[in-house]
Simulated scan of single mutants.
Amino acid sequence: MLATAALLAFHDPIFIIYCISGFFLAANFAPSRWTFAAVAATSFVLYGAALDWTRADIQLIAFHLAIVAVQTVAIGGGHIAAIRIEGRERKYRKAVGDLQTALEENADLHAQLLTQAHQAGILDERQRMAREIHDTLAQGLTGIIMQLRAAQRVEDSGAHIDTALGLAGDSLSEARRSVAALQPGQLEDSHLPDAVTTLARDWTRTSGVDVRVEVTGDRVALSTAIEVTLFRVAQEALANVAKHASATSVGLTLSYTGPAVLLDVRDDGTGIRASGGGEGFGLSGMRQRVRGVGGTFEIESAPGEGTAVSAIVPALQGSPR
């Protein structure tokens, strides 16, 4: 292109304007050294064709060389800077696009997590209510039925009816507390040892089976979650004994061992007979409660040899009452 422009310009100066296109074509070499070479060559052809060499002197030639140098640096540098800026803008646009895509994906993931958390919260609340209903209403109704059946078998049924009414009132109170997610009434003003002792005494009065309560180790004030868990396990274990074991005696041991607290409920009843149905709701509920506070739950039983229920939970301390 420069050779053609030079021939045309030497033929007629009007074709000098054709040389200007060389500055634009020099951008094709950017960002390499050939950009400066292309700009310099274009400048030499442009000013060489425009210069009247018959009247040129050293000063005029030096002036034109200076212009060529300035143009080479300015235009060549401009081309290189433009290419680099364009490359940076392209990278920036790509980064912005990737960020936007990531934000959209994160928004979708966040929405999914919120949905899953909501569903998990609903499931946890349903399971909590199911356990509370089983531990309060179901057990209370079982006790009421037992007392009413006993009242049918005797002439003087007043004591059994009074006991049934007491159980009904207690069950209603516990149901209201469960709906409000409050701790059992026995734990309001006392700690776990006193609460399980009261529980055992009341259970003995309604079931007619003696319970021997033993507390070992140094007593400490446990957190509410730990005490509620162990209390509900003791409550469910005693309820299972009354419904299924046909036991004559029960032993309940609460052991404080420092880093952990152990609850054992043992009976001399008929034991758990193997069946294909797996654990009932009561046993699975106890297991879930204990696992929920980081503990372990075990059952040892054999037909005719009684049952032992054991729960081990961390001794997380709470505020004293």
Rank of each mutant, 00 (worst) to 15 (best):
T136C: 06
Q147Y: 03
R149Q: 12
D135G: 08
S157N: 09
D124L: 13
A164G: 07
A138I: 09
H134G: 13
D162P: 03
Q147E: 11
I133M: 01
D156K: 07
I161M: 10
R131A: 14
E125H: 12
A159P: 13
Q112S: 11
A130I: 03
L167M: 09
D135E: 06
Q127M: 14
R149F: 06
I145H: 15
G140I: 03
G158S: 15
R126I: 04
D162S: 12
H110P: 00
A120H: 11
L137M: 08
L141V: 13
L109Y: 08
Q116T: 14
D108G: 09
V154Q: 07
Q152R: 15
A117T: 08
A120F: 05
L113Q: 02
H118G: 13
A164W: 05
Q112H: 07
A138W: 10
T115D: 12
L113P: 00
Q127Y: 07
D124N: 07
R128Q: 00
E125P: 00
D108L: 12
T142I: 11
L148D: 04
E155M: 06
Q152L: 15
E125V: 02
T115G: 09
Q152I: 14
A111E: 08
R131V: 11
D124P: 00
A138F: 11
L113K: 00
T115L: 08
T115Q: 12
M146Q: 15
L165A: 14
L167V: 03
L137C: 02
I122K: 08
T115F: 09
I122D: 08
T136I: 04
Q119W: 02
D135N: 15
L114R: 14
D156P: 06
A159T: 12
V154S: 09
V154D: 05
G169M: 06
A117E: 06
E155W: 07
A151L: 06
A159S: 10
L114G: 07
R126P: 04
L137E: 09
D135C: 01
M129T: 05
D156S: 10
G121A: 03
R149E: 15
G121D: 00
A164P: 00
E125N: 05
E125D: 13
Q119F: 09
H110I: 10
Q119A: 12
A111H: 04
I133K: 02
L109I: 11
E125Q: 10
T115A: 14
H118C: 02
E125K: 11
E155D: 14
L165Q: 14
H160M: 04
I145P: 01
A164F: 00
H118A: 11
D108C: 00
T136M: 05
G169A: 15
I145W: 12
H118N: 13
Q147D: 04
G158Q: 14
Q119L: 09
T136L: 02
L148T: 09
D108N: 03
R126C: 05
G143L: 10
L109H: 05
L148P: 01
E155L: 10
A120Q: 12
S157Y: 10
A138N: 09
T163Y: 06
I144S: 02
H110R: 10
A138P: 01
E132W: 07
A150I: 04
R126D: 11
G140F: 04
Q152W: 15
I122P: 01
